[in-house]
Amino acid sequence: MREIIFDTETTGLDPKTGDRMVEIGCIEMVGRVETGRTFHAYFNPERDMPVEAERVHGLSAAFLATKPKFAESADELLAFLGDAPLVAHNAGFDFGFLNNELELAGREPISMERMVDTVALARKKHPGAKLSLDALCTRYGIDRSHRVKHGALLDAELLAQVYVELTGGRQIGLGLSPIDSGADSAAPKPGNMPWHRPPADKPRREPRPHVASPEELERHRAFIAGIADAIWTR
């Protein structure tokens, strides 16, 4: 299954009061594995940059003034997103800004049914624990030493690793049950991934026999008998 992990940077906290999205970073994953395809862009917000926001992401109004407006990159972004589920940390925030920009650009908003919120996944898996991206990186041993300031693409890369851990780790589907593995219902089920299915044109091989021969059993008995002071004879 194709999924997009994404993050945004903005001028503030609420698009309804005039705040705008100034950066977006997207990572493509297929079967919970990064493909290497990304989308990253800065946008001219056509407004000032509050000092508090600039402290978070380091993007100044002067830097963004030379960047394209969102509407100029909207079609390219939508083509990259396709119809894949969109994964974000505190996803309601990012969806709110993304859909606000799409509306301002005269595009249809993205359905909230496509939203996957890693905060909700983390809250379910680690109730009562800290749920920030930094805290989850620490929990899962993900290196974030290069994260001096927030950046949309960098945060999306970190989130992609966190998302894998939240949905079962690199061995998704190998647990005895969804409860045992800690995987969320959104995680792929065994048999649904390409590596669980043999090619249609490849004949099915019968299981190889693994029963010990009489000769092997005799050698085993001789070996056991030769062990001095075996604990099973005490």
Rank of each mutant, 00 (worst) to 15 (best):
A88S: 08
K124V: 06
D134Q: 08
L153D: 01
I110C: 10
I231Y: 13
M193W: 13
K189D: 04
K125P: 11
D14H: 06
D155E: 11
Q161K: 15
A212N: 05
L133H: 03
A65H: 11
H40W: 12
P178W: 00
M49F: 15
T35K: 08
A62H: 11
R234F: 15
S132F: 15
T233P: 06
V87K: 01
L154W: 14
G169Y: 07
P194Q: 02
P214A: 01
S73N: 08
S185C: 10
L104I: 10
E46L: 15
R32C: 13
T167I: 12
K16F: 15
T138H: 08
G173D: 00
E76V: 11
S73K: 14
N44W: 14
R114Q: 06
N192M: 14
L102S: 08
G128T: 04
F39H: 04
Y42E: 02
P194S: 02
E113C: 04
E108Q: 13
L121K: 02
R234E: 09
S132R: 09
M49D: 02
N99A: 03
A65P: 09
Q161V: 10
G31E: 10
Q161A: 11
E108I: 10
F70T: 03
E72P: 09
L154Q: 06
V51S: 04
D94N: 06
P50D: 00
V33M: 05
R205D: 03
A200M: 05
S60W: 12
D180E: 13
T167F: 11
Y163P: 12
L153G: 02
A156W: 06
R37H: 13
F95A: 00
T167W: 09
L166P: 07
R170Y: 15
A74T: 06
K202Q: 12
P15S: 00
E206F: 13
T66V: 09
L104D: 03
T66M: 08
T38E: 12
L154P: 10
S132H: 09
E72F: 12
A135R: 03
A156H: 03
P85H: 00
A160P: 13
K125N: 09
K69Y: 13
G169E: 01
M49I: 13
A187K: 01
D83T: 07
A135K: 03
R114K: 09
H89S: 04
K69F: 14
R234K: 15
V87A: 02
